[in-house]
Amino acid sequence: MLSIKNLQVSINGKLILKDLDLEVKEGEVHAIMGPNGSGKSTLASVVAGRDTFDIDKGEILYRDQNLMDMNPETRAREGIFMGFQYPVEIPGVSIANFMRTAINEKRKHLGLEPLSGAEFLKLMEEKKKLVDIQSKLTNRSVNEGFSGGEKKKNEIFQMALLEPRLAILDETDSGLDIDALKVVANGVNKLRRKDNATIVITHYQRLLDYIIPDYVHVLYEGRIVKSGGKELALELESKGYDWVKKEAGAQIQG
């Protein structure tokens, strides 16, 4: 589904991602872990199409299409979803209006008829239940005045409505108490299908107690320095990142 090869990304001449390779197949859940500043969020943003970065070299293929040729909205319509670490407040735009516009632009792109108001409302009710979101939240302006937990739940709610093929959740667990974390993880698990894939970016292991990954990658200084199964996350939890840093240091020097 997603194939990243030799990706090198910089901001104002500063290298953020170096020779990064990542292969994600349908039905898989990948966790990308790593210390702060290792480039995790940059990776998510690059896949979603944020244009504040320079892609120096490498390629990103998504379902055999070159992602670099697509603007962010086309990527979204083709099934890529990024859950933001810091969801943006949009005063005055209701979640309902926002999501209806998004869904209908996606449907148009796919050659489908737009959803009517009633159809959309029905879909919204369905998804609200799925992610356990309070109904009053959807009448409010997008993220405006939301608590940290509400913002993250709202991300999952949007994901549920858009039904992405590839979801990249950027630090969706940050700032969440354990109850909110369970709600978010539960939502992600319910949305898992054989034909979609999820990349979970996190600093801590605890989210991975609830979303069980097939693969865990450790990103350090812009490179994936270690990959393994779910047990790697537990190892990181007990040993900390210093262990990886040391190993990586030896690798780089060696």
Binding site: A48, G49, R50, N71, P72, E73, R75, A76, R77, F81, M82, F84, P87, V88, E89, I90, P91, G92, V93, N97, F98, M99, T101, A102, I103, E105, K106, H109, S141, Q158, L162
Partner: peptide
């Protein structure tokens, strides 16, 4: 707000629609 613009586009909303939604909300 360019942040809001990217957020909306990342959900599949075109630049034009995103602008309209934001100006209308304003």
């Amino acid at each position: 707000d360019p942040q809001a613009m990217f957020y909306m586009r990342s959900r599949g909303i075109s630049e034009r629609s995103a602008r309209q939604l934001m100006m209308y909300a304003f």
